[in-house]
Each structure stands twice: as C-alpha cells, then as structure tokens.
C-alpha cells in the first residue's frame, strides 16, 4: 500500500517527540516546577521551617497588596530598572560605536571592557563597597583631598547619594554585555549600504538613522527585554551593597520578598510577591515583544 503525504501528516511523530522529551523534562523540572510551586505556595500559609501548612485562598495577596512597603518597594524597583537600563544602554551603545570605529587594539579593548561583566557579582559588590566606603574608601578620600568636596562623601549612607551609587555600580556591571551585543550587530551591517549612502550625499546622522538603527534595532530590543527582566529581578548587588537600606531607601521587590520569606519565614506571602512580580514582568515582556514584532515587520 502506498503511503501518501496526507497519511504522513496524520501519523504522530513519536521519534521526534522522544528526541525532545529530555529537553522538555529538564525545562519542566528547572523552570516550570519552581514557578508552579511558587503559585501553589502563594495560596497557602507555607512557613519556611514548619512542615504543616493550609490553603488560605487570596489571604497572602490581600496582605501583600495592603502593605504600603510593597508599593514603596515596587516604585523603587521601577526606578532602579529604568535608570539602570537607560544608563547601561547609553554607555554600552556609546562604547560599541566607539569600538566599531577604531581600527587598532580592537580585540584588546573589547576584552578589557568586558571585564566587569566577567566578574562574579559578590566580587563587584565587595570591591565597590570598599572603594566607596565612607571611612576608608579610596574614592571618597581622594575626592576630599583633591578639594572637589569639603567633606568625605557618604555614598552608602547619604540618602541623596545611595540610590544613584547603586545605579552607577549596576551600569558599570551591565554595560559590557550591551556593548558586545551591539558591537556584533554593528559588524553585521553591510558596508556597501554606507558607501551607497555616501555616494547619494547622505550625512553621517542620516546614515546612522536610516542604515545603522534599522539593522541593530532588533538586537537592542531583545537586549532591552532581557535586561529589563534581569535588572528588575536583580537581588545580589543591592543586597550585598546596602541590604535595602538605609531606611529602606533601596529596598526593591526581590529584597522585600526575601525579607518576608527568609526573615519572618512567611514563604506563602513571599511566593505571592514573586507571583505578582512575574505577572508584571510578563505584561512588560508582552509589550516589548509587540514592539519588536512591529519593528521586524517594518524592517522586512
């Protein structure tokens, strides 16, 4: 009997399914299981240590949403993400453009500039904590000795400086990744398009807007999605540098969730915070992807 294309389409491809099964299992165990567990715990009175717990419906969500500290942490989180992302994009983009232009020592400079990204965040946090220390720190003492400031600046205790200091450290840490990605996107732009534009009498700005931007837009968009998620969820740098203080000025949602889950051991309530955080990030991602699709259609 002859097998037609129609029959082939109808027959389920077991072999293909078996091939992807390990990946699906890994994905389920590493990604979906923790998410489902968090969602489940968010409806329970789960305690970090005590074994027994019960279903409490939306109690945890009500408690979280009626806590003014949650909104304060949420707003701090938004500010932290927007300023850090904008700074990282600006520095990363500028560095990538500069590296793309220069001819000599490109590889060497690229390697040097990627160093902050290669360091573990604990090393970065402790190094900056020491460099900016208000008693022994090299930078504050140098600023005073140079006469730039009259008193030693307190980067981690002055309420007007502490948030900016954290954002600065995060920009310093995150910019290299943006730089490397944008640089590779820049290198993929065909040179002949620039030459054609030059022959047509286009200015450097016109070439940048009409050739460079459309080519790197999708890469930048994707970077923005990824960095938004990472920065919004970032915990280590803030926790290690300030722990959310002083006076909760730098408490973001992950720090707030940690304090609830590991501090007072209310894992159920902490899970509710993480679920709310997840929902918010999914909405932001949906918005970003809509924008990315639009750009892609325009480019094509």
């Amino acid at each position: 009997m002859q097998i037609t294309n129609k029959d082939l389409r109808k027959k389920p491809d077991i072999t293909g399914f078996l091939f992807i099964l390990p990946a699906v299992l890994v994905l389920f165990l590493l990604l979906l299981y923790p998410v489902f567990t968090s969602v489940y715990y968010s409806f329970t009175s789960k305690h970090l240590v005590r074994p027994s717990y019960k279903f409490v419906g939306f109690d945890n969500y009500i408690k979280v949403l009626s806590d003014p500290n949650f909104y304060k942490a949420f707003m701090t989180n938004i500010k932290w993400t927007v300023y850090s992302l904008a700074g990282q994009l600006l520095v990363g983009f500028t560095a990538a453009m500069a590296l793309h232009r220069i001819k000599k020592f490109k590889s060497f400079l690229r390697t040097i500039l990627i160093i902050p990204w290669a360091f573990p965040s604990i090393v970065i946090a402790l190094s900056w904590k020491w460099i900016l220390n208000g008693v022994y720190g090299f930078v504050p003492i140098m600023l005073q000795k140079l006469g730039i400031v009259s008193e030693i600046p307190q980067f981690f205790s002055n309420p007007n400086l502490v948030f900016g200091t954290l954002v600065f450290v995060n920009i310093w840490f995150g910019s290299p990744l943006i730089m490397v990605n944008i640089l590779s996107a820049l290198q993929s732009v065909p040179e002949d398009q620039y030459e054609a534009a030059q022959i047509d009498g286009a200015s450097a700005w016109q070439s940048f807007c009409s050739i460079t931007v459309p080519h790197i837009r999708n890469v930048v968009g994707l970077l923005m999605v990824l960095r938004t998620i990472w920065i919004f969820n970032s915990f280590d740098i803030i926790f290690l540098l300030t722990g959310g203080g002083p006076a909760n000025i730098t408490t973001t949602l992950p720090i707030y969730a940690y304090n609830i889950g590991w501090g007072i051991k209310q894992l159920g309530r902490s899970s509710a915070i993480t679920v709310l955080l997840l929902i918010f990030l999914l909405l932001v991602c949906a918005l970003y992807f809509k924008l990315l699709n639009k750009w892609e259609k325009e480019f094509n």
Partner: peptide
C-alpha cells in the same frame, strides 16, 4: 560617629576599633 556607621554591621564596627579609629 562616622556617618557611614548607619550601615555598619558587627565586623565594620569592630574593625574601626581594631584599627585604632
């Protein structure tokens, strides 16, 4: 107090004494 002691934990505080400050 040094202004930064608003963030001091046990080791930061002890170090200040250890170093004669």
């Amino acid at each position: 107090s040094p202004a930064d002691s608003i963030n001091f934990k046990v080791l930061d505080q002890a170090t200040l004494y250890y170093q004669g400050k």
